[in-house]
Design a protein around this nucleic acid. Structure first.
Length: 414
RNA sequence: GCGGCUGUAGUUCAGUUGGUUAGAGCACUGGAUUGUGAUUCCAGGUGUCGAGGGUUCGAGUCCCUUCAGCCGCCCCA
């Protein structure tokens, strides 16, 4: 029997209901804030990611779904969506004046990784990207949007961690400080950290090995090495978040796995997600647009895991709310013709009605209406036709009554 | 990419030191009831024991390979 490809899954029933619920919330909030949706291709040329996410990142050097297509192009199924959005924004000249440009996306992403709970090879992200504005105010707006969204979903008590990773001007000095600190006690660090200190020294800071965390005691703080502009930026963002009552903690060891971040970096973890605890992450990426060949454009954004949001929603609220339609069951040829006429009117008025089209006996029709979870069964036979009514049976209480045909639409919507 | 565990009906699971025809609850199908579901009663097992190979007189059970899932590492959403 054919099976879905390893690491991919079919979404249906309760899962897809949660996905829809989450996406609808997101779209509502994005539209309120003036964000426009953008949909970029799943396939991108490999260079888009090598030049943005960074060759030293795990995403690029071990997790990409890449292949040669029939035209001998080296393509990748996108492992994240920011690089593609930036590529598209440059290609279509959306960023030429450095006007604010607010974009969001919802879509599947692909990383070739070992399966684990909450980690799939095809997973979904919702993301927000804010282009053209370098201020901490634009970051506060984006984070406020994010927390409005989380609040609409009923998710509270999530802890926002923030840090500043500085800029390309002040980072070299910090790298030097970290290297000096590392070399003085290198025998205490794990093998991975020895690799990281060469490739991306910041990543030593968030090594999960307990020994490394202990060895990091007293490590130089990037916040002590920020230049004046970055330090002021960071302080201003913290003041704005406090003023907006968005709770956060400062985590000087927070480093993100993508190379393009500058200044603000942040993430939210959840203890309800097991080992794959990252729910969302983001930050400022002022150099990326230029790096990919566009105008020098500041930018800030985040991405949240839809699959993991759905896990949290299920844990917090149980099954997704479901509104099953009423079922109209016609009995006999004359009633069937009349039923088509009726449902067309009801549908036009926005009523949720499913038409029984099997010409089956009533018992069978009632049985499947019940299994479907329908609230109402609407029976239309010759007797009802003559009187201009139908028999409406409430399937949860078992009571039934006659409704005038002209009243049905109003009663269904009540 | 590394380590550990699991896989039996639609589903949740049982199945003894390897031993006859692989079982149970729920679900499902038919009937009691051809204009009434859910509830009740009666009847029905619906299976390539994940797949392939091996050991054996004999394999759901032991061995190897493989596929899939779960848990952890790495990483991240």
């Amino acid at each position: 029997m054919a099976q879905s490809v390893k690491g991919t899954r079919d979404l249906f029933g309760n899962d897809v209901r949660w996905f829809q619920h989450i996406e609808e919330s997101a779209r509502r909030v994005f539209h309120r804030h003036g964000y426009e949706e953008i949909r970029t291709p799943i396939l991108e040329e490999i260079e888009v990611f090598k030049r943005s996410v960074g060759e030293s990142s795990d995403i690029v050097h071990k997790e990409m779904y890449d292949f040669m297509d029939k035209g001998n192009r080296h393509v990748v199924m996108r492992p994240e969506n920011t690089a593609g959005v930036v590529r598209a924004a440059i290609q279509h000249k959306l960023l030429i004046n450095n006007d604010p440009r607010l974009l969001f996306y919802v879509g599947p992403q692909f990383r070739y990784e070992r399966m684990q709970a909450g980690r799939y090879r095809q997973f979904w992200q919702i993301g927000a990207e804010s282009f053209g504005v370098a201020t901490p105010e634009s970051e506060a707006e984006s984070l406020l949007l994010l927390f409005e969204f989380l609040h609409e979903l009923g998710l509270k008590h999530l802890q926002l961690s923030i840090n500043s990773v500085g800029t390309s001007e002040c980072r070299p000095a910090f790298h030097a400080a970290i290297r000096a600190f590392f070399e003085a006690r290198q025998e205490r660090f794990c093998a991975d950290c020895h690799r990281r200190i060469q490739e991306n020294p910041l990543r030593v800071l968030d090594c999960k090995v307990p020994g490394c965390q202990e060895a990091l005691e007293g490590h130089p703080l990037i916040t002590d090495h920020l230049d004046e502009a970055s330090r002021a930026h960071h302080e201003r963002l913290k003041a704005l978040l406090s003023a907006m009552d968005i709770p956060f903690v400062e985590n000087p060891r927070l480093v993100r796995g993508l190379d393009y971040y500058s200044r603000t970096a942040f993430e939210v973890l959840s203890s309800d997600l097991g080992a794959q605890s990252a729910l969302l992450g983001g930050g400022r990426y002022d150099g990326l647009v230029k790096q990919l060949g566009g105008p020098d454009t500041p930018a800030f954004g985040w991405a949240i895991g839809l699959d993991r949001l759905a896990i949290l929603m299920q844990a917090l609220h149980g099954d997704a709310p479901v509104q099953a339609p009423a079922v109209l069951i016609p009995l006999g040829d004359a009633a069937t013709l009349k039923a088509f006429e009726l449902v067309r009117q009801w549908w036009a008025q926005g009523c949720r009605v499913q038409l029984e089209t099997r010409n089956a006996n009533l018992k069978k029709a009632m049985t499947s209406a019940n299994r479907l979870g329908a609230g109402m069964a609407l029976l239309l036979g010759d007797g009802e036709l003559e009187k201009g009514v139908l028999t409406a049976k409430n399937l949860s209480t078992g009571t039934q009554e006659e409704w005038l045909l002209e009243d049905v639409a109003a009663k269904l919507r009540a």
